[in-house]
Simulated scan of single mutants.
Amino acid sequence: MRPEDSAGAAEPGEPVLLLTDDAPPRASEEPAAAETEGAPGRGRCCLCPSSPCGSRAEPAKKKAPCPGLGLLYTLLSTFFFSLTSLFVKKVQDVHAVEISAFRCVFQMLVIIPCLIYRKTGFIGPKDQRIFLILRGVVGSTAMILIYYAFQRMPLADATVITFSSPVFTSIFAWIFLKEKCSPWDALFIVFSMTGVILIVKPPFLFGSSSSGTEESYSVHLKGTFAAIGHAVFSGLTLVILRKLGKSVDYFLSIWYYVIIGLLESIIVLFILGEWSLPYCGLDRLYLILIGGFGLGGQVFLTKGLQIEKAGPVAIMRTMDVVFAFTFQIIIFNDVPSWWTVGGAICLVASSTGAAIHRWYQSSK
Rank of each mutant, 00 (worst) to 15 (best):
P3D: 15
E4G: 01
A9D: 11
A9L: 13
E11I: 00
T20Y: 12
D22T: 11
S28C: 02
G38Q: 09
P40M: 10
L47K: 12
S50D: 15
P65F: 04
P67D: 12
G68E: 09
G70I: 01
S77E: 08
T78D: 08
L83D: 00
S85V: 01
F87D: 02
Q92D: 14
Q92P: 00
D93S: 12
A96C: 04
I99W: 02
A101T: 00
V105R: 03
L115M: 15
I116S: 11
K119W: 05
K119E: 14
I123S: 14
K126D: 10
I130G: 13
L132V: 02
G136R: 02
V138W: 07
A142W: 01
M143S: 08
Y147A: 00
V160Y: 03
F163P: 05
V167G: 08
F172A: 15
D185K: 15
D185H: 12
S192V: 00
G195L: 08
I197Q: 07
G212A: 07
H220G: 07
L221C: 10
L221V: 04
K222I: 06
F225Y: 14
A226Q: 06
A227G: 09
G229I: 03
S234F: 12
L236N: 06
V239P: 12
I240W: 07
L244R: 07
G245R: 10
Y256L: 01
V258I: 10
I260A: 05
I260G: 06
I271L: 15
S276K: 14
L277G: 00
C280T: 07
C280N: 14
C280E: 15
D283K: 08
D283N: 15
Y286V: 01
I288M: 14
I288F: 15
I290S: 06
G291Y: 04
L295D: 07
G297I: 06
G304H: 07
E308G: 03
E308D: 10
K309E: 13
T318E: 14
F325P: 01
F327K: 02
F327S: 02
F327G: 02
W338H: 09
V341T: 10
G343V: 03
S350Q: 09
S351P: 06
S351V: 09
Q361C: 11
S362N: 13
K364T: 05
